[in-house]
């Protein structure tokens, strides 16, 4: 930090009583060492998660007799293990996309309501109320989704199956559209679960819209909605994208709500495009079989599925992070 040209450096023995006390160089070294250590530990932990999952999944994958990525079979014990994640991937991604399609528009609208429309006396309690949605444990969402909310959605499913059944994703699927335990219901419940995440982050960016942008638009005679469209939404767009990504990440990895609501399918059931169908996500597959981790081979297969889920959420979260970083670079 400092360059020194001086030669006259006599004994720096200080004179006053305070100055003669320890200047804490040792303490500084210990404390900064501890904090760097903690930071490094976090990095190491994330790397270890990847490393452990990879090293223990690889032996099982090597013995796998079908393509791990394209097969939907799941036989993990015995001499000839055959397992693949195609089916899990489909259910995981489709249910999460349903959740995003529903939660992002509603979440953005709620965030706009909280930042632009709500009267001041309402804005804070209203925001607190939405945040409470995040405090409900996912297992309670599962219980509620299966027993209370799902039955209400069944008529909706039947309506879609009856009038839009010609679209493959809305196909009645042998009457499963009358069942609660479908991908569709899971998607809607996931949407409610990620709504507070999408809302909270969108609210944060909308609230940061520079006053000058808003006043600029209003001074042109824009209505409130036009002001939002010209000033607030463009400013908040990267924030909304990364909010959507974070919500997606949460939906992809959600376990208990999915496990409780979704019906598992009998092995060998052929794949259909319909949303009115059972199935398993990565997370629910692992949770459903958690009691059966006994041989390394079996466990390895589930760890492999967990690894794919980890990578999936890693990518989605990294995108969210990069988008928001870009925005920071812009606004600073």
């Amino acid at each position: 930090m400092t360059s020194v040209t001086g030669v006259s450096a006599p004994d720096p023995s200080p004179t006053s009583s305070v100055a003669s006390r320890s200047t804490g160089r040792l303490g500084d070294r210990v404390f900064s060492g501890l904090s760097i250590g903690a930071g490094t530990l976090v990095v190491v932990l994330v790397l270890l998660i990847g490393l452990f999952l990879v090293t223990q999944a690889v032996p099982a994958l090597q013995r796998n007799e079908v393509n791990f990525l394209t097969s939907s079979e799941w036989t993990v014990s015995g001499e000839h293990p055959r397992f693949g994640v195609a089916g899990l991937l489909w259910v995981t991604v489709v249910s999460s996309i349903i959740a995003m399609l529903l939660a992002v528009p509603v979440g953005v609208a709620v965030a706009l309501f909280l930042t632009q429309y709500a009267p001041t006396w309402l804005a804070r309690p209203a925001a607190g109320t939405i945040d409470l949605l995040a405090a409900v444990p996912s297992i309670v969402y599962g219980l509620w989704g299966l027993r209370q909310f799902g039955p209400v959605l069944v008529p909706v499913q039947q309506f879609f199956a009856q009038y839009f059944g010609w679209i493959p994703i809305f196909a009645p699927n042998n009457g499963l559209s009358g069942n609660v335990s479908t991908i569709f219901v899971v998607g809607v419940v996931l949407a409610i679960m990620i709504l507070p995440i999408v809302t909270a982050l969108s609210r944060e960016v909308f609230a940061q819209t520079p006053r000058a942008h808003i006043e600029g638009a209003m001074a042109l005679g824009a209505t409130k909605w036009e002001t939002i469209r010209t000033a607030v939404l463009p400013f908040g767009k990267p924030g909304v994208i990364s909010a959507a990504m974070l919500g997606l990440g949460r939906a992809l990895g959600e376990t208990l709500a999915v496990t409780i609501i979704l019906a598992t399918l009998a092995p060998g059931t052929p794949w259909v495009a319909s949303l009115f169908n059972g199935g398993e996500t990565f997370a629910s597959k692992i949770a459903n079989n958690a009691g059966e981790f006994d041989t390394p081979q079996k466990t390895g297969a589930f760890l492999a599925a967990g690894l794919v889920l980890f990578l999936l959420t890693f990518v989605v979260n990294a995108i969210a992070r990069i988008v928001i970083e870009r925005r920071k670079a812009f606004s600073e």
Partner: peptide, 15 residues
Amino acid sequence: KDLYAKDMDPVAVRR
């Protein structure tokens, strides 16, 4: 005394 001498501790200087 040079405040920027190598063995001079900034913490002591500020005291």
